[in-house]
Simulated assay, not measured.
Amino acid sequence: MLGMGLSPLQTGTPDSLLAPLYWILQFWSGIMTWLAQYTGLELLQYGFMHRAILVGLCIGVMAPLIGTFLVHRQLALIGDALAHTGFAGVAVGLFLNAVLDLGVSPYLTAVIVAMIAALLIELISEATDAYNDVSMAIVLSTGFALGTTLISINAGGLAVGVKQFLFGNLSTVSPDSAAILLVLFAVIIGVVGLTRNQLLYVTFDETAAAVSGLSVSWYNRIMVMLTAMVVVGAMQIMGVILVAAMLVVPVAGAAQVSRSFNESLLVSVVLAELAVILGIGASYYGKATAGGVIVLTAVAIYIVTILLGKLQTAVGEESTPEMGSIDVGQTESAGD
Rank of each mutant, 00 (worst) to 15 (best):
F144E: 08
V90R: 00
L194A: 15
E318S: 11
G291F: 11
Q45C: 10
V248F: 07
L54Q: 03
I294K: 01
T39L: 11
F69Y: 10
S152L: 13
L170F: 07
L41K: 03
L271I: 11
S260D: 04
A234M: 11
V269K: 01
V134E: 05
V315A: 12
G103L: 11
V230K: 00
G309I: 12
A36I: 09
L102H: 05
Y284F: 15
M225T: 10
A209S: 14
S174R: 02
I116H: 04
L181K: 02
I53R: 00
M49A: 12
T207A: 12
A81G: 07
I24W: 13
I138W: 06
L146K: 02
W34R: 04
F261R: 00
E322H: 03
S7R: 00
I66D: 04
A255R: 12
G147M: 08
G324Y: 09
Q37D: 15
S319V: 14
G239D: 09
G253D: 11
V270E: 05
I188V: 15
I53N: 03
V304R: 01
T109Y: 08
G103F: 10
Q26I: 13
A155Q: 11
P250T: 03
G67C: 13
T195H: 07
H72E: 14
L18V: 04
G213S: 07
I306H: 07
F69D: 01
A110K: 01
W28K: 01
A282R: 01
I326P: 04
A275T: 07
A255I: 11
G279M: 10
T203D: 05
L108F: 15
K163V: 12
V99K: 12
L2I: 13
L158T: 07
L57E: 05
S171W: 09
L82Q: 03
M223L: 15
A155C: 06
M235G: 06
T172K: 01
I301P: 00
L75S: 09
A298C: 08
I277E: 04
A81W: 08
L158K: 03
E332H: 08
L226A: 06
L170T: 09
R196E: 14
V134N: 03
L25H: 00
S215Q: 09
D133Q: 08
I124C: 12
V55Y: 01
G309D: 08
G157H: 04
F87Y: 15
L57R: 02
L108G: 02
M115F: 11
S141H: 06
F185N: 00
A209D: 12
V249G: 04
M225W: 05
A252R: 00
I294M: 13
I277L: 15
L123T: 07
G168K: 00
D129Y: 11
N262Y: 09
L35D: 05
L146H: 05
A110G: 10
I280W: 06
